[in-house]
């Protein structure tokens, strides 16, 4: 039985191992210089070195801190405004076209202005992340609220509910599933924007670490950074957001498995 369970993992590991072997063998065979493609050993040594002096952890933590703060600020704005737009037709008529336009600019294009207004570093980067997370989850919230059947409102209203009661018993629970989905996808957009923003406006962080290494031709740091970016996202997505989704959405049987 145990071997059966292991099989998919072994299968999945095969191409990774294949790439690792190719990556080790090919550059020396084709005599690619190390600054173009450093060997896995070099990247590994770099990983040990940067872990040892603590700078790698520092960059990772700074990046995660910015992402978390941008996520909180963006969603604290997106959820209330999204609910307002979803509930009130006038608000939706006035604001949606404007927000649709602003959404199409959202993201890294704000970096120059953000740097000008908040200075290079944390302020500018968090502004950009919050901006993109806001627009990503705003629409989710609007859709979530709009998809609540009108009958629920009427049922609660006929029982004499106040506006606050409606918010508490109809809107928030009704839109909750969509909110969770929105949190997850807005985090994905935020993560993309974070690395981009750090490339340009960072003095620390994973994105900064990789582009800064280009200037010194420390390609092993660049590749290490890429691997870490991939791993962090997979870990975050799998263990944080997919767990959250299973705990909430799937358990209530609202979202269907693919």
């Amino acid at each position: 039985m145990k071997t059966l369970k292991l099989r998919p993992y072994l299968l999945a590991a095969t191409p990774f191992i294949g790439i690792l072997i190719l990556w080790t063998v090919l550059p020396s065979l084709l005599s690619v210089p190390a600054y173009k493609l450093p060997s896995p050993q070099l990247v590994w040594t770099k990983a040990i070195e940067l872990t040892g002096d603590g700078s790698l952890l520092q960059h990772i933590l700074v990046s995660l801190y910015r992402l978390a703060l941008g996520f909180i600020v963006g969603n604290l704005l997106a959820v209330p405004i999204g609910i307002a737009i979803g509930v009130n037709r006038h608000a939706s008529d006035f604001l949606l076209p404007l927000l649709t336009f602003l959404q199409s600019i959202a993201g890294i294009a704000w970096i120059p202005l953000a740097v000008l207004w908040f200075g290079i570093g944390d302020g500018a980067i968090i502004f950009v992340i919050a901006n993109i997370i806001f627009f990503s989850n705003l629409y989710n919230t609007v859709i979530g609220v709009e998809s609540i059947p009108q009958a629920y409102y009427r049922a609660v209203l006929s029982l004499g509910a106040s506006r606050f009661d409606i918010l508490k018993t109809v809107i928030i629970p009704g839109a909750f599933v969509q909110l969770i989905v929105g949190f997850r996808s807005s985090m994905a957009f935020g993560w993309r924007a974070l690395i981009g923003a750090e490339l340009i406006a960072g003095t620390t962080g994973l994105g900064y670490m990789t582009l800064d290494a280009v200037q010194w031709y420390q390609t092993e740091t660049v590749i290490l950074g890429m691997i870490i970016v991939g791993v962090i996202w997979l870990v975050m997505d799998r263990f944080l957001f997919r767990k959250l989704e299973t705990m909430t959405v799937r358990r209530w049987g609202i979202l269907q498995d693919k």
């Binding site: 993560w191 993309r192 690395i195 981009g196 490339l199 994973l206 994105g207 990789t210 582009l211 290494a213 280009v214 660049v222 950074g225 890429m226 691997i227 970016v229 991939g230 791993v231 996202w233 997979l234 997505d237």
Partner: peptide, 9 residues
């Protein structure tokens, strides 16, 4: 999962 900006350098 390695986002596009990470490929850029």
């Amino acid at each position: 999962a390695i986002v596009e900006s990470a490929w850029l350098p």
